[in-house]
Amino acid sequence: MDWMVWTLPTAIFFGVIALLLVVMTTWELVSPTRERRGFLPISTTRGDRFFIGMLSAAYIHLAVVGFTSLSLWLALGVSVVWMLVLLRWG
């Protein structure tokens, strides 16, 4: 595993993603999702909204990192809020 050059931040990053996937799966097992139409132009399931949230989070982080000098934590905060909004009303 040495060649994979792990660092603590990336390990935490992948750990959190794995955890989120487990949580989403358990949630799905406990109460299965229904496809519905929110403010997004397409009807989505919970998993779809989760994916859209993750993808836009990646773009939010890139935009903040690349084109502003704002803190990365701000990007994270915005992404989390956006994810919650998506999951609730998307």
């Binding site: 040495d2 060649w3 994979m4 050059v5 792990w6 660092t7 931040p9 990336t10 990053f13 992948f14």
Partner: peptide, 15 residues
């Protein structure tokens, strides 16, 4: 892919 992510936050000369 994980390795790429690891690389991307470091300056790697060797392991």
């Amino acid at each position: 892919l994980m390795t790429v992510v690891n690389y991307s936050v470091q300056d790697v000369f060797d392991a």
